[in-house]
């Protein structure tokens, strides 16, 4: 699920960036630092949408670096148990397949794949129904439901299922 929230961060800025473009420098450094990171608490920071305010800088003793407290708005993405996501398959093996929905990695184990789909090994491993009409392989798009998440301080990993109504392949790259 996506959220638009306000976060705060202390930015350390080298004295060489001081000058007319101080503010721009802070913002660009913030974007570089923060976008794409993951915190267990808020999820993945997808994008910074605006700066709320930049506080007074504090010069660090000895180094000359200045710390600015920055409040910024950003879009975060955090997967939840029970959430339905669309994801792209990245790897298929005997144990199941891995997929990515944006930054988040999802593993679907083989017993959460419908029983009528069988694993086919080869140079393009895939799961196929007995009549061959549905095929899950690398780069397939699947709709899946998250049934478990592991949230670490800097990492979120999910396991999903496609064994439910309206779940499964939504676009087959081989057919396209």
């Amino acid at each position: 699920m996506f959220f638009h929230i306000v976060l705060e961060r202390n930015m350390q800025l080298h004295p060489r960036h001081f000058g007319r473009n101080l503010r721009d420098n802070i913002v660009s450094k913030l974007m570089k630092d923060v976008e794409g990171t993951c915190s267990g608490r808020h999820g993945f920071v997808v994008a910074i949408t605006g700066i709320e305010n930049i506080g007074k800088g504090l010069i660090r003793d000895g180094t000359g670096f200045v710390t600015f407290p920055v409040k910024y708005q950003c879009v975060v993405f955090r997967p939840f148990k029970g959430e339905i996501l669309e994801a792209v398959v990245t790897m298929v093996n005997k144990m199941g397949f891995f997929a990515e929905a944006g930054p988040v990695q999802i593993f679907v184990s083989n017993h959460l794949i419908p029983d009528d789909m069988e694993f086919q090994s080869g140079d393009m491993p895939n799961y196929t129904t007995s009549d061959g009409s549905v095929k899950i392989q690398k780069d397939s798009e699947v709709r899946l439901k998250i049934i478990g998440t592991r949230v670490d301080a800097t990492e979120i990993f999910c396991i999903g299922t496609i064994k439910d109504d309206f779940l499964g392949v939504i676009n087959d790259p081989a057919a396209a």
């Binding site: 790897m91 093996n93 005997k94 144990m95 199941g96 891995f98 990695q105 593993f107 184990s109 090994s121 491993p125 478990g148 998440t149 592991r150 990993f157 396991i159």
Partner: peptide
Amino acid sequence: ALDALRLISLVDE
């Protein structure tokens, strides 16, 4: 299954 990411081997499936 939540450990799956760490368990994949590069050698086989």
